[in-house]
């Protein structure tokens, strides 16, 4: 089939028409992807004011009042934010240190990068199981402490699992999030760092000054969207918290599940209030993430 000019023009026009058509379907596709969450939001909104769901008895603001009047809610929110902030900070610092230390092309660098990324595809639950076996009061760490003569019985070992500060949970989440943040950090340094750093060194900055004033700021700015994503993910993650978090204060995701499965049907409306709060926070994070990312894209051009 010979492409005559007319045929070629027809094909081009067809493609152009198709392109606008697809551009319109682009928004529809995105809407389709988001629709389950939107349906969930609408349903949770109705159920939180007594208009839908099991135990619904007509319009009421009671679930909202009860959730926000309960000091346990606020304690749980504060505790969850603490754990998310601590583990995100630790993981970010760890990823930055790894990226700065092992960015080269040597064998040690390669091995370190492989190790740093290894837990990336591992389910969070596995990190939780590992933490229980290692950090629990009769876990590996406690046994090592016994061998070292530091403790005589498990009860003497400071609690690292289900402890009020969430140490075990923070460590497990840090372990699980370092790979993702390292991946981002390594790729930022591989693509963006070198030019600015060379300029700084040419202008007389020492290695430490270069790291402090050039490398780390470049890293931080590039990692920010990923850091926001990790914070959001960690704050909403349920399966690690259920293994490692204490019962008082009760972490936000655990509060949702507790109220959602409460035999007293009147309490289930409260779960929907918390779900709406969690989803609002997630939507906020999406907005922040998109904004940071687009700002960075502008810088890249």
């Amino acid at each position: 089939m010979v492409p005559t000019p007319r045929r070629a023009r027809a094909a081009r026009q067809l493609t152009a028409r198709q392109l606008t058509g697809r551009a319109r379907t682009g928004l529809l596709a995105a809407l389709l992807l988001a629709s389950p969450v939107l349906i969930g939001v609408i349903y949770a909104g109705l159920a939180s004011v007594g208009l839908a769901g099991v135990g619904a008895r007509g319009l009421t603001g009671l679930p909202w009042l009860r959730v926000f009047a309960d000091p346990g809610t606020w304690a749980g929110v504060g505790w969850t934010l603490w754990v998310a902030a601590a583990s995100t900070t630790l993981a970010t610092a760890g990823a930055m240190a790894l990226a700065v230390a092992f960015r080269g092309s040597g064998r040690l660098d390669g091995a370190a990068r492989l190790l740093a990324l290894l837990p990336l595809p591992i389910p969070h639950l596995v990190a939780g199981v590992g933490a229980v076996l290692i950090l629990g009061q009769s876990g590996i760490l406690a046994r090592l402490a016994y061998q070292a003569g530091l403790v005589a019985v498990p009860a003497e070992m400071p609690a690292l699992v289900s402890d009020p500060w969430g140490v075990g949970l923070i460590l497990a989440l840090t372990w699980k999030e370092i790979p993702f943040l390292s991946l981002v950090a390594f790729s930022i340094l591989a693509t963006r760092g070198t030019l600015l750093e060379e300029a700084a060194r040419t202008l007389g900055a020492g290695p430490l000054a270069t790291i402090r004033h050039v490398t780390l700021p470049v890293l931080w700015r590039g990692m920010l969207p990923a850091v926001v994503a990790v914070f959001t993910f960690v704050a909403g993650s349920w399966e690690v918290a259920v293994l490692l978090a204490p019962s008082d204060p009760l972490a936000l995701p655990l509060q949702v599940m507790e109220r959602h499965t409460d035999p007293a049907l009147s309490r289930r409306g409260e779960a929907y209030v918390l779900v709406l709060v969690a989803l609002a926070l997630a939507a906020l994070a999406v907005a922040v993430h998109e904004r940071l990312r687009s700002r960075w894209e502008v810088l890249e051009r």
Binding site: L33, P36, V37, A44, F233, A282, H289
Partner: peptide, 21 residues
Amino acid sequence: LAAGAAFLPVAAPPLAVGVGL
């Protein structure tokens, strides 16, 4: 807008999505 919408089911905690659905 589209990227944000597609990001919503990724960012929303599965627990919240599950309870809502």
